[in-house]
Write a protein that binds this DNA or RNA. Structure first.
Length: 865
RNA sequence: GCCCGAAUGGCGGAAUAGGUAGACGCCAGGGACUUAAAAUCCCUUGAUCGAAAGAUCGUCCCGGUUCGAGUCCGGGUUCGGGCACCA
């Protein structure tokens, strides 16, 4: 054993050992308990960033820990390789997206290997390879035949200068990010998956996911947004076509003073045909971004259609308005407006001077149409009652709801209906670098799925990419084909799938590498995933699609489980300050923090920043998650080169608990390196003194007994942190504390050395999942065994943890005043007596009468005077 | 705007079911070793008052519950994530 800790030497040795012994290649083995640990795969953006290091270290720690418990552990890795950044890079670097992507994958794989992650690379998936995406094309065609897929018009952001569809991210302040042109909303036909058909199951399934964080389940529940309400029709004046609306507040039916429809609603479009002013308004008001945050914060605007409906109970004449805050995609795209009890309607009615009618009251509150108050909309207020509503007066929400629904059902103009906020998933993207949607368009047969024996529809990779048009759209040869049903000349779909499509089922493909099917029977040995780890930013979209796809695959007979993953750890984001320069036209260029020099004020807050290369000023942006688009990712490679993988892994785990967000800062890495050197020296010092005798744990002196108790307390704490709490910073701190204790332990006798052997072995094994390279080397030196991977994780010996005396805290009036040491089996009375006899306690109690005495066994005494 | 989180020393963080606030580490200061540097080791380090013993204050803000609140409840502030075409 070398005297010096040389991370690069031992890391290379450990990694070759793992490679040579194929240590992480696993096979299905029904006789052993399996553990499938999955980390969200990276987008190959170029380099790993700290968020990846943190995510993958957590996964690797969990995998290695479970392996030390004897389980058959699968930990795969791959690349989510389709996506927008490849197209941007292709334009910037005048290369093909495929080439850029593959070279990034190559580099990132070397980084992952350098960090020592135990992946079974024989199962790797790269989602841009036809042998991967052919199976999602197959699934899509089956879903199409089954009726789970449909096509409808849907809105996209259109850049009129670049003549291209923009992602929301590419729209900045309503303008195209490259052209600067005002973005238009355009409706084009797109493919949708009927996720709403699974809305109820996706909702109910959350209750079975005990291993998922509550926050994620609550967010998903709210996102799915189940509501119960009434769907009914207004008779339209001078027309046979009724206006259908959905409401969750039938109890306020008598407060309806107008109806609002979405800008794209057929009624609005029809009315605009002979009303140029309205047509202008519809066009102008819809020329905004299509994202919800903008939608919710924009000014509410509307215009009357000049069409009237009849109130179904009062018979009153009610105008229809087009309103920019009504969503075409939710409910029926039309709502009954109750300005008296809906905040948005209230605001709208005040702006356009529409009548506001109070139909709900709360005892003791005064209604005022000039000012909105929260109780106006509080249907669950215990004092809430319906008023000014004829036969419904005096009812509470529930009863009024039921009565109104009953009346409408009787007359046949309405019915109770469950509605979901969740919308069907639009999967079409007007982009090149994605999986081609396997559909053929024929004049006669319309949209026909590509037959299974003609799959995959391969995306050409060797293309020139300018960013204006997708190369497959531009290539008439690629598009040209024949119709599978009638044989006539036909054209291929040139849109590609949303990249969430690929990431929704990769967990399944990992289980069946090489299968000439989507998956084979191996999948049901490994699935469901036992532990899924990824960023909290995926709490809704990815994790919902992931669950949805699992159910689709189940219903196609590919998998047997209902949910894809039993346990989820949502890693907090690694965030970092952002820096940018702004051109005269407002275009921002994001600067990497590594290239910026910052000046701080006395309190350590940043004052100003400049470019390190030429000293030109740089603006300071917000502190945000590390991302390609904000260029604030920190490349871990420099740290790996300087300190080695173990130090980087140790620091990433020590810096904060896994689910907390972490503002990245390199300061502190030195401490992790120092700790590993200390560990190495400690073990070296011990081993270099030669072999040890057997420990006689029944006959220890007090110093030995105390060290051994500290050891077994630490083992219990660390095992709990790994297994139950999944909090590694405290596990590391506990081992550090133990090592501080060991440093003070004077070893003189042979039995001292025997005890130290036990301590060092346990320390090395406890740290092994986090720092496996040094673990590998030190375990060999200590035990003579070649492989720490399959060594058993230490088990705390309860007998060793029993102490003769304990220290109790004594409070007077809840304030800490003294400590007393007592035999650990002391009774409540003994404890109290000892506390009251304590000098300092007597001083604070003095001669005041004692009101209360509280004894918490093993913890404290509180004397209340 | 809506939904979900978070806030504790100079810094990262600990306090696990309401019971010792600041574990562990970083930074900083002082010292030892060394020709020197690196490395290593030891000590100090929440604030205020005090020579010390010690006392008082202190976990974003305001209020509440409790013998006892960083932790629970009500109201707010700020920051982060998501909002359906970034992944």
């Amino acid at each position: 054993m070398n005297q010096e800790y040389e991370p690069h030497v031992i890391e290379r040795a450990a990694q070759s050992f793992w490679t040579d012994t194929k240590a992480f290649e696993v096979k299905e083995d029904p006789s052993r308990e399996k553990y499938y640990c999955l980390s969200m795969f990276p987008y190959p953006s170029g380099k790993l960033h700290m968020g990846h290091v943190r995510n993958y270290t957590i996964g690797d720690v969990m995998s290695r820990y479970q392996r030390m418990l004897g389980k058959n552990v699968l930990q795969p890795m791959g690349f989510d390789a389709f996506g927008l950044p490849a197209e941007n890079a292709a334009i910037a670097n005048k290369t093909a997206p495929a080439k850029w992507t593959y070279s990034n994958i190559e580099y990132m794989k070397t980084q992952l290997s350098a960090l020592g992650f135990g992946y079974d690379w024989t199962r790797e998936v790269q989602t841009c390879r036809p042998d991967y995406y052919r199976w999602e094309q197959l699934l899509f065609t089956r879903l199409l035949k089954k009726g789970m897929v449909y096509r409808k018009d849907s809105v996209v952001n259109w850049d009129p200068i670049d003549q291209t569809v923009l992602a929301n991210e590419q729209v900045v302040d309503g303008r195209g990010w490259r052209s600067g042109a005002m973005v238009e909303r355009r409706s084009i036909p797109q493919w949708f998956l009927k996720i709403t058909a699974y809305a109820q199951e996706l909702l109910d399934g959350l209750d079975t996911l005990d291993g998922w964080p509550d926050s994620v389940k609550i967010m998903q529940r709210n996102w799915i947004g189940r509501s119960e309400g009434l769907e009914f029709s207004f008779a339209v004046e001078g027309s046979d076509e009724p206006l259908t609306v959905y409401t969750t507040r039938p109890d306020t039916i008598m407060g309806v003073t107008f109806a609002s429809v979405a800008l794209e609603h057929p009624f609005a479009l029809a009315a605009a045909r002979n009303n140029p002013e309205l047509a202008r308004f519809l066009k102008e008001a819809s020329a905004t971004s299509s994202c919800e945050a903008d939608f919710e914060t924009m000014e509410k605007r509307g215009m009357p259609l000049g069409i009237y409906v009849t109130h179904p109970i009062s018979g009153e004449r009610i105008p229809i308005w087009a309103a920019n805050f009504v969503l075409m995609g939710y409910g029926t795209g039309a709502v009954m407006a109750v300005p008296g009890h809906d905040e948005r309607d209230f605001e709208f009615a005040r702006k356009y001077d529409l009548p506001i009618k109070q139909v709900i009251t709360v005892e003791g509150e005064t209604y005022d149409t000039q000012r909105w108050q929260d109780w106006y909309a509080d249907k669950l207020h215990p004092e809430m009652k319906v008023v000014n509503s004829g036969e419904f007066d005096g009812l509470d929400f529930r009863r009024a709801f039921d009565e109104v629904v009953k009346r409408f059902e009787k007359t046949g103009i309405g019915a109770r209906r469950v509605n979901f906020r969740l919308r069907d998933w639009g999967v079409s993207r007007q982009r090149y670098w994605g999986c081609p949607i396997p559909v053929i368009y024929c004049d006669k047969c319309e949209a026909v799925p590509v037959p299974e024996d003609q799959l995959p529809v391969v995306l050409p990779e060797d293309v020139a990419f300018s960013g204006v048009q997708s190369p497959i759209k531009a290539d008439p040869e690629w598009r040209k084909t024949t119709c599978p049903s009638c044989g006539a000349p036909a054209e291929r779909e040139t849109d590609t799938f949303d990249t969430f499509f690929e990431s929704s089922w990769y967990h399944t493909r990992y289980t069946s590498p090489g299968a000439e099917q989507l998956v084979d029977e191996r999948a049901n040995y490994w699935l469901p995933v036992d532990q899924y780890i990824g960023g909290i930013e995926h709490a809704i979209l990815h994790l919902l699609y992931f669950r949805f796809f699992h159910k689709l695959m189940r219903d196609e007979g590919f998998v047997h489980s209902d949910e894809p993953a039993t346990h989820l750890l949502t890693q907090g984001m690694v965030i970092k300050e952002t820096y940018f320069t702004e051109a005269a036209d407002g275009q921002k260029t994001w600067i990497n923090p590594a290239d910026v020099e910052i000046e701080f004020d006395a309190k350590g807050h940043p004052l100003s920043a400049k470019l390190a290369s030429d000293g030109s000023p740089v603006q300071i942006g917000g502190i945000e998650k590390m991302s390609k688009s904000k260029n604030n990712g920190i490349d871990p490679q420099e740290l790996i080169d300087q300190y080695g993988a173990d130090t980087v892994r140790l620091f990433a785990m020590f810096a904060s608990p896994p689910d907390a967000s972490l503002e990245w800062n390199d300061a502190g890495v030195e401490g992790a390196a120092r700790f590993l050197r200390r560990l190495w020296r400690g073990v070296h010092g011990h081993v270099s003194q030669g072999p040890v005798e057997k420990l006689d744990s029944a006959h220890l002196n007090p110093a030995q007994k105390s060290l051994r108790a500290a050891l077994h307390d630490t083992i219990a704490k660390v095992a709990d942190d790994y297994g139950r709490r999944k909090q590694y910073n405290t596990a590391i701190a506990a081992v550090m504390e133990l090592m501080n204790t060991v440093a003070k332990f004077e070893d003189a006798s042979a039995q001292d050395r025997a005890l130290l052997q036990e301590v060092w072995e346990a320390v090395v094994l406890m740290l092994n999942p986090i720092v496996p390279h040094i673990g590998h080397a030190l375990w060999q030196a200590l035990s003579g065994q070649p492989n720490a991977l399959d060594a058993s994780f230490p088990v705390a010996e309860e007998a060793a943890r029993i102490k003769d005396t304990i220290t109790l805290v004594v409070q007077v009036n809840g304030k800490l005043r003294s400590r007393i040491e007592l035999a650990s089996e002391a009774s409540k009375e003994d404890i109290l007596a000892a506390a009251l006899a304590d000098e300092k306690v007597m001083k604070f109690v003095a001669d005041q009468p004692i009101k209360k005495k509280i004894v918490v066994p093993g913890k404290l005494v509180n004397i209340v005077v």
